[in-house]
Measured scan of single mutants.
Amino acid sequence: VTLFVALYDYEAITEDDLSFHKGEKFQILNSSEGDWWEARSLTTGETGYIPSNYVAPVD
């Protein structure tokens, strides 16, 4: 499982989006939707859509 880490803070715009803070880690559930990925936060356990350009793979 490839994990991703937030590079910036993000505040949800719609109820389907997931708010997060810089440094938060995610498991990507679906990355086939283009620039918005469905993800689960490993910090909160919540799922929602995140902007793919706000995250990077964890080394």
Rank of each mutant, 00 (worst) to 15 (best):
E15R: 10
E24I: 02
K25A: 07
I50T: 00
S19C: 04
Y10E: 00
F4S: 03
N53D: 11
Y10T: 01
Y49G: 04
A39P: 00
Q27M: 15
D35M: 12
I50Q: 00
T44L: 03
D17E: 15
A56P: 01
G34T: 14
E11D: 10
E38R: 10
Y8L: 09
F20W: 01
I50C: 01
K22T: 08
P57D: 04
S41P: 01
A39K: 00
T14V: 07
D17R: 15
E11L: 12
I28Q: 01
Y10F: 12
V1E: 15
L18K: 02
K25Q: 13
K22Y: 05
D9R: 04
D35R: 09
L29S: 05
E33L: 14
L42T: 08
D17I: 12
E46H: 11
W37C: 04
S32C: 09
Y8T: 06
Y8H: 08
G45V: 02
E24Y: 05
E46G: 08
S52N: 06
P57L: 08
S32P: 11
K22Q: 10
V58G: 05
G48I: 02
P51A: 04
D59G: 14
G23Q: 03
A56G: 10
N30L: 06
V55M: 10
P51E: 02
A6H: 00
E15W: 12
S31D: 11
D35G: 12
K22D: 02
T43R: 13
A6L: 01
P57I: 10
Y10C: 03
E24M: 05
E33S: 15
T47D: 04
G34I: 11
I28N: 01
S41C: 04
V1H: 12
I28Y: 03
Y10I: 01
Q27N: 08
Y54W: 07
K22R: 11
T14M: 13
L7M: 09
D17A: 12
F20T: 03
N30S: 12
L18F: 08
G48W: 02
Y54L: 13
D16H: 13
S32R: 09
K22L: 06
L3V: 13
A39V: 15
D17Y: 15
Y54C: 06
Q27V: 15
D9K: 05
V5W: 06
G45E: 05
Q27P: 00
E15D: 13
T14D: 12
V5L: 06
A12K: 08
G45K: 05
N53W: 12
S31M: 13
E33Y: 12
E11W: 13
E38A: 07
W37E: 01
E33M: 13
Y10S: 02
E15V: 13
D16C: 10
G48F: 03
W36V: 07
Y54D: 01
V1P: 13
V58F: 12
Y49K: 12
F20I: 05
V55K: 00
S41R: 13
S41T: 04
E24S: 04
L18E: 00
L18R: 02
Y10V: 02
I50R: 00
P51S: 05
A6Y: 00
E24K: 01
A39S: 03
L7Q: 05
E15I: 11
L29D: 05
L18G: 00
A12G: 12
A56F: 09
L3R: 05
R40F: 13
F20H: 01
D9W: 04
A12I: 02
S19L: 02
V1F: 14
L3N: 05
G45N: 09
F20A: 02
A12D: 02
I13A: 13
F4G: 04
N30C: 07
N53L: 10
L7S: 02
F26K: 00
L29Q: 05
W37Q: 02
E11T: 14
G45Q: 07
D35V: 10
L18A: 01
I28C: 04
S31V: 10
V5F: 09
Y49P: 02
S32E: 15
S32D: 10
H21E: 08
G34K: 14
W36D: 03
D35H: 13
E38C: 08
I28D: 00
Q27D: 08
I13C: 07
L18Q: 03
A56N: 06
Q27R: 08
S32G: 11
V5Y: 14
